[in-house]
Design a protein around this nucleic acid. Structure first.
Length: 492
RNA sequence: CGGGGUGUAGCGUAGCCCGGUUAUCGCGCCUGGUUUGGGACCAGGAGGUCGUGUGUUCGAAUCACACCACCCCGACCA
C-alpha cells in the first residue's frame, strides 16, 4: 500500500523529505536547490511571521524594504563580510536576452547588454542597508535607527535540503544603528531574547542561547549570538542569530553621527535574522512517524471536525451540529475546519489530518447525535475520548493549551536526555557516533583545537552558552586548561 | 569540483546483463455502482518524446559514444 511515511528510526532524512511533501508543506522546484512553499506550509510561515512581526513592533522596530540587487562595489565595501559570502553569490551580469539567430524560438543572453557593474543577488542586506543608513544618519537625534525587513535572499549552496538549506529562502533581517556600544549590544541581546521566547512559546522548541566562537561567527560581526535547538535525530540546528556588528559596517560605509558635543562618531550596528529554516526546525522537533505534529499556536487549522455518516439525512443533521461547534469555537478564537466532503472516508480523513499535524480532531457520527456526545482526539498523544457536547467549549481550549505545553515538555525532556556532560575525548566520539545530542565539554579556547575536533568528529561548537558557568577543567582535546564548558554537537 | 548512482505515465517502479510483436505492476486520476465510527470495494477507462542526441543493427527502453538533469557521499554553509 505504501501509505505510511518512512520510519524516523530507519531513515531520518527520507522521513523528513517525504513528510515535507506529503503534508503539503513544500515541493522541490524546477530550479536546483529552490523550493515551492505550498499554501499549507506557507500559512505556517505566515503564523510565524505574524508572531515575530508583532514582537519586532513591540520592541520599537519598523519594517522597510531594500532592493534584492547589490552593486558589486557596495558589496565588497565591508571586506570580511564580502569575503565570507563571496563563494555563494549569484551574480547578474546582463540585462537583456535576444532571440538566438541560429536556433529558432530560443533565447540567448545579449552580449551587447553587459552591465557596467555586476549586481550581486543579496545573500544578506548589510551592504545596501548601510549605504542607505549613511544618508539617513547625521545626528544623535537620528538614532537609534531600528529597521526590519521581510525578504528573500539567495545563497548558492552546494548541497541543499528543503527548508533547512535552500538556494533561495525567506527570512527577516533586522538592521539597527545606535549611538553607543552598550546600546547596540543591548539590542543584540534583546533580539536574541525575542527569538528565544518565540521558539519556546510558539514553536514549543526549547533553545540554548549562546555566543558563537570566532570560527562560527557571522562574517563582519564582532560578536554573534544564536539560539540552538536539538532535533530528534540528535543533530543541532541553529534557529536564529543576532549579531553585534560593532562599528565594522559604519566604518566600511562611513556612517557617522554628531553627538551632543558636536563631535563625529561612527555608529554601532546590529543585525539579526530568522528564516524559513524555522519550518525545518518545527518539523524535526515534534513530528512522528504518522506525520507532522504542530503546536496549536502555529497550526493553520487547530481543530478539524470530521463527520461520520451513511446517508444524506445523517450528514445534514451532523453538519448542523458541526457548524454550531465551529461557531462556538471560533468565538473563542480557535481556527476550525469542518470537512464535510463525501469524497473521502472518515478513516482517510483521520490519517490525512494526522499527516498534516492538526492538533485536535473532533468526530461526530450518528451515535453521537443520539447521545449528545462527540469524540475528541489529540494529535500529540493520540489520546481519544468521548465527551458530552456541553463540555466541548471548555475542553477544546484546555486540550489545545495542554498540547502546546506537552510538546514543549516533550522536546525539553528529549533535550535533557540527550545533553551529555563529557570529560574524555574517547567518550565524546562514542556519544556522537551512538546517539548524538548536545555535549558539554571543556575547550581550551583556541580555533585550532575547535578545527581539529571538527575534522575528526564533524562536531562543532554550537555556542558558548550564555549561562556558562565558570568551572576549571582541561580541554577535552588538548588537555590545556579551560574555564568552562561549551556546547558541542553535529549540526545541520 | 572529486567519488558513486539514477533517469521508463502525475508519483513510485519491472523490463536492460542476454536487442525481436501491443512496454510491466502499484498508487493516483476519470466513469458507474456498492460503501462510510481508522487510509473502502468491484467493474470499466484515460494517460508514454522509455532524459537528449548520434551511432551500430533488418530491428534499440535494451548495445556504443557524447551530452543533459537529478540524487547520495565529500569539500562549503543560515
Amino acid at each position: 500500500m505504501n501509505k505510511g511515511l518512512p520510519k524516523r528510526s530507519e531513515n531520518y532524512s527520507e522521513w523528513y523529505n517525504e513528510l515535507v511533501k506529503r503534508a503539503d508543506l513544500a515541493d522541490h522546484s524546477d530550479v536546483r536547490g529552490c523550493m515551492v512553499i505550498k499554501p499549507y506550509g506557507y500559512s505556517i510561515w505566515e503564523k510565524m511571521q505574524q508572531a515575530l512581526d508583532k514582537k519586532f513592533k513591540e520592541t520599537g522596530h519598523s519594517n522597510a524594504y531594500f532592493p534584492v540587487f547589490v552593486p558589486k562595489s557596495l558589496f565588497e565595501a565591508e571586506e570580511k563580510n564580502a569575503e565570507g559570502f563571496a563563494k555563494e553569490c549569484a551574480v547578474v551580469t546582463h540585462y537583456r536576452l535576444k532571440t538566438d539567430p541560429y536556433k529558432k524560438g530560443q533565447l540567448i543572453v545579449d552580449p551587447d547588454a553587459k552591465l557596467e557593474e555586476e549586481l550581486i543577488v543579496r545573500p544578506t542586506s548589510e551592504a545596501v542597508i548601510w549605504s542607505t543608513y549613511k544618508k539617513w544618519i547625521q545626528s544623535y537625534r537620528d538614532l537609534p535607527l531600528l529597521i526590519n525587513q521581510w525578504a528573500n535572499v539567495v545563497r548558492w549552496e552546494m548541497r541543499t535540503r528543503i527548508f533547512l538549506r535552500t538556494a533561495e529562502f525567506l527570512w527577516q533581517e533586522g538592521h539597527t544603528a545606535h549611538a553607543t556600544q552598550d546600546e547596540a549590544m543591548q539590542e543584540t541581546l534583546t533580539m536574541l531574547e525575542v527569538y528565544a521566547e518565540f521558539a519556546e512559546k510558539y514553536m514549543a522548541l526549547p533553545v540554548i542561547k549562546g555566543r558563537k566562537t570566532e570560527n562560527e561567527r557571522f562574517a563582519g560581526a564582532v560578536e554573534t549570538f544564536c539560539i540552538e535547538a536539538l532535533m530528534q535525530d540528535g543533530k543541532a540546528l541553529q534557529a536564529g542569530t543576532s549579531h553585534f556588528l560593532g562599528q565594522n559596517f559604519a566604518k566600511a560605509f562611513d556612517v557617522k553621527f554628531s553627538n551632543k558635543d558636536n563631535t563625529l562618531e561612527y555608529v554601532w550596528g546590529t543585525s539579526w535574522g530568522v528564516s524559513t529554516r524555522l519550518m525545518g526546525a518545527l518539523i524535526m522537533a515534534h513530528s512522528d512517524d504518522e506525520g507532522l505534529v504542530l503546536p496549536p499556536l502555529l497550526a493553520p487549522i487547530q481543530v478539524v471536525i470530521v463527520p461520520i455518516f451513511k446517508t444524506a439525512e445523517q450528514l445534514n443533521s451532523i453538519s448542523e451540529k458541526a457548524q454550531h461547534i465551529k461557531k462556538l469555537l471560533e468565538e473563542k478564537n480557535i481556527t476550525v475546519k469542518y470537512d464535510n466532503s463525501d469524497k473521502q472516508t472518515p478513516g482517510f480523513k483521520f490519517a490525512e489530518y494526522e499527516l498534516k499535524g492538526v492538533p485536535l480532531r473532533i468526530a461526530i457520527g450518528p451515535r453521537d447525535l443520539e447521545n449528545n456526545t462527540i469524540e475528541i482526539a489529540r494529535r500529540d498523544t493520540k489520546e481519544k475520548k468521548s465527551i458530552a457536547f456541553s463540555e466541548l467549549v471548555h475542553i477544546v481550549p484546555q486540550w489545545l493549551s495542554s498540547i502546546q505545553e506537552n510538546l514543549y515538555q516533550r522536546a525539553l525532556n528529549f533535550r535533557s536526555k540527550h545533553t551529555h556532560i563529557c570529560d574524555s575525548y574517547g567518550q565524546f566520539q562514542k556519544i556522537l557516533d551512538n546517539e548524538g545530542g548536545f555535549i558539554l565539554a571543556h575547550w581550551d579556547g583556541s580555533p585550532e583545537t575547535e578545527e581539529k575536533i571538527k575534522e575528526e568528529t564533524k562536531a562543532t561548537i554550537r555556542c558558548i552558552p550564555l549561562d556558562f558557568k565558570k568551572e576549571n577543567g582541561k580541554c577535552i582535546y588538548s588537555g590545556k586548561p579551560s574555564v568552562g564548558r561549551v556546547l558541542f554537537a553535529r549540526a545541520y
